[in-house]
Design a protein around this nucleic acid. Structure first.
Lengths: 120, 120
DNA sequence: CGAATAGTTAAGCCATGACTTGACAATTGA
DNA sequence: TCAATTGTCAAGTCATGGCTTAACTATTCG
């Protein structure tokens, strides 16, 4: 998945106030779907849909034991967005993007454009 | 404006890919509306609307000289979101929220609930 | 087993947001 | 002054996203 799309899904997840509240709740401790839904004035199904969006974005993870699903915050789930922001904060630090790309490169360090280029 | 709403408007601004591209462009250097619109396959009016959303969110600023408007990135425009993310990254640092609130408190440091409470 | 619990999925409704077009305003150059 | 440039505003169209209800699955308890 391209970094660009990762950031897109994170932002689409966080733009909803209910999902932000869920993230804030989970930043304190893990919780079950029922516990997470309780404070909200909406159906359980709606909360489940929000949780699915957060999980698809890699912001939370969950495990189902028996009939109960427990959700927790995914540690590095917001890193991509934090890096994007930091890169725009000070343009001089836009190298951070390359660093991030390098750090999570899968294989073949030979095909990276790196610093030298355009030998035409 | 409450911090909660600031974060909301920042996220609503950044969730659109076109507006993110505009921010990325402006993170390199200021530019006029026409220059900003050029790379996009959409009407100038649409780009203007995007720029208004970014400015309303405090992410960019602009100044009109003659008939040309020049836009630039607003230095601290993403700070509120960056702080929110940082606070969720490590729950132990959720004190950052209080710190941020304190630093931009207008007056009357007497009405802050602070740490002690519920003397019932 | 049978009923209650906990969650999941699907379908549909409705508000919001992104884009278009067209009319308009204001500045600048010939 | 007239025309081109640069942007702005308003109204309307269309797709997307958030919520609901209803039907359904899977687990636990009596």
């Amino acid at each position: 998945m391209l970094e660009h799309q990762v950031i897109d899904s994170i932002l689409r997840a966080l733009v909803d106030p209910t999902r932000r509240a869920l993230v804030e709740r989970l930043s304190r401790s893990p919780a079950t779907v029922g516990e997470l839904a309780a404070p909200f004035d909406m159906s359980l199904a709606a909360v489940v849909q929000h949780l699915q969006a957060l999980e698809a974005a890699g912001i939370i993870a969950s495990e189902k034991i028996g009939r109960v699903r427990t959700c927790r915050l995914e540690p590095g789930g917001l890193d991509a967005l934090a890096l994007w922001i930091e890169a725009r904060r000070n343009p001089a630090e836009r190298r951070l993007d390359r660093l991030a790309a390098f750090l999570k490169a899968p294989e073949s360090p030979a095909d990276t454009p790196s610093t030298q280029e355009d030998p035409s």
